[in-house]
Design a protein around this nucleic acid. Structure first.
Lengths: 391, 391
DNA sequence: GCTCTTCCTTCGGATGCCGAAGAAAGAGCG
DNA sequence: CGCTCTTTCTTCGGCATCCGAAGGAAGAGC
């Protein structure tokens, strides 16, 4: 018996492309290459292979030739470009207190970004209502602008079983455990949906749009919570049980016996997360309500906030130093609201250079996310455009 | 210009087998499978593919049919076995104060193991002399026993550039920096040689002989020093610069400001390595000279030694808890001399179960090496038998 | 003795890669 | 201006690895 079709006949698109073909698209979309010869150099494949892959993509309309470039002493290269024919994926980046939405195109652009307050702790029902409503409007707007909507990618701030598309035991968010987020959204929107952890989609976004040539990188999302996404051998690394990338529930000295939402004590999260900083600043009488407020105070030069954020960076750096020695990545990328605070980035850098082995840091890039607040949307959208649709 | 032949014409052997073919051999050698049908189930490949691969191997004499098994309700399977035709690789496991040698066969057996005292700190010349002398005798003995020597695998207790086969900046071993260990040995023995870090070869040994079906595991070698080898997606993970797997130079609270051989302070190594335990026990007036002596004291129930070893296990467990949350492996395997001390294993287990996320430990195996002191030899030998010879 | 299961092989075909050869189109130089 | 060298890209034949369909061989169970 063939599996029941879970979704309306998906438009033939980028979904389910072979690995090499997808890499060609990513490299062109990111601007890292602009001709077949560039691809040969970047991919290390035979020219004939690259030529064949490019031809396929051109035939499918996923890639277009766009005039000629400048000669480097021989024949001029024929430039390649992603035709912005309007294929987009909707993308949703869920946070514990907000949802950010947008439509991501093949070229890596994000259209019609919007952000709404939402409290995920109130359970799936309320959030889902808002989400579906806004996504329908967003989809309609894309179609009105002549763009085809190919799917939806969602980043969720907690563990996700990517095989079933269900949320797994998120802390501080009662009612979400085993909620079939993917299937509910797919039903209500009539689109193929992909759901993954927020740090994972952010790692994908950074890797695919900013650093596609790197093989091993760690993205740390420092917002209200702390998460990380791992790219290994150019691919998202999930570990044995899909739980890889947690650095939030590691015990740090400074957190002593503070109880954590995970049920343990002394976790990094209790001293270095946005939520912890908000609590600490409120105790000191400062009017803050979220990680964004903390960031604002830091940017205004408020001394207590700056000290706390720098201290948080040190704690994160302490934990990351173990990760860097062990995993030896090419880059550590800091994302999330707090990564926009320079003192945090500086503290992480300092800690890593002080504590890690020279062999691990000599070729290590440590940087704040270059794609800013849209990194999660980009990753979720890209993944939805590229992955086999039903996953 | 073709590359100059670096070594005498290598005998056609298992060297440089395609990945799938090598996996077939590993699975049969480890006893995990015993028929083509088993291979189909284990590898998830089409029966026709498995059949073709097996046929190739049988034709090459690397695999043999060995009668029939018992029926499971249909035709009896034709059993497969590795013919012990006597193809072996020499293997050398170098420690800072000893070298262990043996010959590893395709079936996973180790012949003629011997161990000699040697002080690597005296520089490469002295060690190399002993090594080459003993290896020549060992090779001769293999040939006299009718076995073919196909190569040499070496585990070195420090960083190794596996591309060039050179030692890189090992601490406490002056004279070894950039020493071309692989090429020197290859010249003097006339064999293809493979050199890698000792923890890496040990991880390979454990993975290939005991746990070949696992995709992600971490092996910790706790001997005089502390190292780790990482298997990710079934393959050795080296990281961006080949430095992956270090857990020894992570700062731990209890080590305070103790200076470490790496030039930093407060490293795990200064409180949990065999060298550190030896120093601590000597300070207390106990006559110990190496990790083996420490182990003996523990097994004799000496209280101070037991306390120290348990404490060392806690420190190692503390660092490993970060690794387990981040990397989410299927197994943590403890090897090296100290792993034979039950209190250390128990302490690591306790620490991991206490500190890690339930999601990371629910399906995690934490165990001492099942291959014992020969794990390193097995890994080095296996690697030498399987890898493209000149690497 | 019949059917169903299990094990394994044979055959044709798809995919993805490669290298050799060469065509197209420029730069540089005498 | 014409010649050569460089760069870019395509065409073509070939190889390696995998697949699925079909079927043969040999058992268990009724």
């Amino acid at each position: 018996m063939p599996p029941a079709p879970q979704r309306p006949a998906a438009p033939a698109g980028t979904a389910g492309l072979p690995a090499t073909t997808a890499r060609v698209l990513d490299l062109v979309a990111s601007g890292a290459v602009s001709s077949r010869a560039d691809l040969v150099r970047e991919l290390g494949l035979a020219a004939s292979t690259v030529s064949a892959r490019v031809q396929e993509l051109v035939d499918q309309g996923l890639l277009a030739e766009d005039g000629e470039g400048t000669s480097r002493g021989g024949r001029r290269p024929r430039l390649l470009r992603i035709p912005d024919d309007g294929a987009v994926a909707l993308a949703a980046d869920l946070g514990s207190h907000h949802v950010r939405l947008g439509a991501v195109g093949l070229t890596g652009g994000v259209h019609d970004v919007e952000e709404h307050a939402a409290n995920l702790a109130e359970g799936p029902a309320a959030t889902l209502g808002l989400l579906v409503e806004r996504l329908r409007v967003l989809a309609e707007r894309q179609r009105a602008a002549g763009r085809t909507v190919r799917g939806l990618g969602v980043g969720f701030p907690g563990p996700v079983d990517t095989v079933t598309g269900r949320v797994v035991a998120p802390s501080r968010m009662p009612g979400w455990h085993l909620f079939a987020l993917r299937d509910r959204l797919a039903e209500q929107l009539g689109l193929p949906v992909l759901v993954d952890n927020d740090a994972n989609v952010m790692a994908l976004g950074e890797h695919r749009t900013a650093l596609p040539s790197l093989r091993h990188l760690v993205l740390v999302k420092a917002g209200r919570g702390i998460g990380s996404g791992v790219i290994s051998h150019g691919q998202l690394y999930r570990g044995a049980g899909g739980a890889a990338g947690d650095i939030s529930h590691v015990r740090v000295e400074a957190a002593a016996e503070r109880p954590c939402s995970c049920g343990n004590i002394g976790c990094l999260e209790t001293v270095a997360s946005g939520a912890a900083l908000v609590a600490a600043l409120r105790e000191r009488g400062l009017p803050v309500d979220g990680a964004a407020d903390v960031l604002r105070l830091v940017q205004d030069g408020e001394p207590q906030a700056t000290t706390l954020v720098r201290q948080a960076g040190r704690h994160i750096g302490t934990v990351l130093s173990v990760v860097v020695n062990f995993f030896n990545p090419q880059a550590v990328v800091l994302g999330g609201a707090l990564a926009e605070a320079e003192p945090l980035v500086a503290a992480v850098r300092g800690m890593l250079y002080e504590r890690c082995l020279p062999m691990a840091t000599s070729d290590l890039t440590i940087t704040a996310s270059t794609t800013g607040p849209d990194a999660g949307l980009l990753g979720a959208g890209h993944a939805a455009l590229r992955e086999p649709a039903a996953s």
